[in-house]
């Protein structure tokens, strides 16, 4: 599908989703106009709002790409939440204990977080290669292990005894990537990584092989792709992206420490993003910003209109469904139309 058509499908799906959301708001007896006004005002209406949006989008870009890259290569990695947490706890611990100067520590922390995420997805890849375990199941289950393992770590061995909740102490102040306005400078890195990912997909052999394997593994193998190796690499890269998202959240988010529940919904939102974007890198990034705006605006929407911010999850879900449905519809009827036109031409010429 051409990029332009993909874009149009995405926008159409979005519009359908927003119209459906209007109906739902109306059914609740609230004013859709006010809801959207609040959503817009608190996501893009002022500098602080824009910062909120960008901050919310930063981890989403990476978790979204993580899901997209794995799926594009036919590896069903659903372990984003777990890989995110493992990356985050690694970053937090390195941030507390690394004794080196800033210029070397920050890269080390981020590499460490990415490596930890890759290790977590690598486990699933290893199980698949060695024992033929479906990664669909193993990545999902590893999420639980990651969640409880990190909770254990911050409740007992690395607990900050002065904290009122289960959390580590804060990382060294010099390592934080946030401005005084709490703008997460990690977004630059996230965008750079997105560009790098796009470059891999478009220009590198491995990116092409991933895509081919994703389309048809057997055919790709016949064509000379090293499917086993490529699969493992895709899983590792996907895990590294999620781990990096966790690391950036620790360094650049508002907490600067690992606490119970810090993973929030970033992992699953990433999964949704990849679904909407149909595993396309650029679309994933665009939708990540859009979801970030929804997340930031949701708080204000609840505040101004007392429509609960959970409604944002409803909107997100509706958008996912409508984008996917729109895409399928256009593919189906578009394909039929194309076939019709072609047949006509052939008939006319004969």
């Amino acid at each position: 599908m051409s990029r332009f058509r993909k874009f149009i499908v995405g926008i159409l799906g979005l519009i359908v989703g927003l119209i459906l959301s209007i109906l739902i708001v109306k059914m609740q007896g609230k004013s859709p106009l006010e809801v959207y006004k609040a959503l817009f005002g608190y996501s893009l209406g002022s500098l602080l709002s824009i910062i909120s949006t960008l901050n919310a989008a930063t981890p989403l870009i990476l978790t979204g790409l993580s899901a997209a890259m794995a799926w594009d290569a036919g590896a069903i990695n659903l372990g984003q939440p777990g890989q995110f947490l493992i990356g985050a706890i690694t970053a937090a611990l390195l941030g507390i204990y690394l004794p080196f100067p800033v210029w070397i520590s920050i890269p080390l922390i981020l590499i460490g977080a990415a490596a930890a995420g890759a290790l977590w997805s690598g486990l699933a890849a290893f199980f698949r290669q060695k024992y033929n375990m479906d990664e669909f199941v193993s990545t999902l289950m590893l999420n639980f292990i990651a969640e409880y393992f990190t909770t254990y770590l911050v409740t007992y061995p690395f607990l900050d005894p002065k904290a009122y909740v289960a959390s580590t102490t804060a990382i060294r102040k010099a390592f934080t990537l946030a401005t005084p306005d709490q703008f997460n400078k990690g977004i630059y890195l996230a965008v750079l990584v997105a560009i790098f990912t796009w470059w891999i997909v478009k220009r590198w052999g491995i990116g092409y092989e991933w895509h081919m394997i994703g389309l048809n593994q057997r055919f790709a193998a016949v064509g000379g792709c090293k499917t086993e190796r490529d699969y493992s690499l895709a899983m590792l890269y996907s895990g590294a992206l999620s781990g990096l998202a966790g690391g950036i959240l620790i360094l650049g988010g508002t907490q600067h420490r690992f606490m119970k529940g810090i993973g929030g919904n970033f992992g699953w939102d990433g999964v949704m993003l990849a679904m909407i974007a149909n595993n396309d890198v650029i679309m994933t990034v665009i939708f990540a910003f859009f979801f970030g705006a929804l997340k930031a605006g949701g708080i204000g929407m609840e505040f101004d209109t007392s429509v609960p911010s959970e409604f944002i999850l409803v909107i997100e879900a509706i958008i996912v469904i409508s984008v996917v449905a729109t895409r399928a519809t256009i593919d189906l009827y578009g394909g039929k139309l194309k076939a019709l036109v072609k047949t006509r031409r052939v008939v006319k010429n004969s």
């Binding site: 907490q255 529940g261 810090i262 929030g264 970033f266 930031a296 708080i299 204000g300 609840e302 505040f303």
Partner: peptide, 18 residues
């Protein structure tokens, strides 16, 4: 007005700011 963060740390700062 009430702002509930629902134990989601990503909501703490923006809610308080709002």
């Amino acid at each position: 007005k009430v702002l509930e963060c629902k134990f989601d740390p990503s909501l703490y700062y923006p809610s308080l700011l709002t």
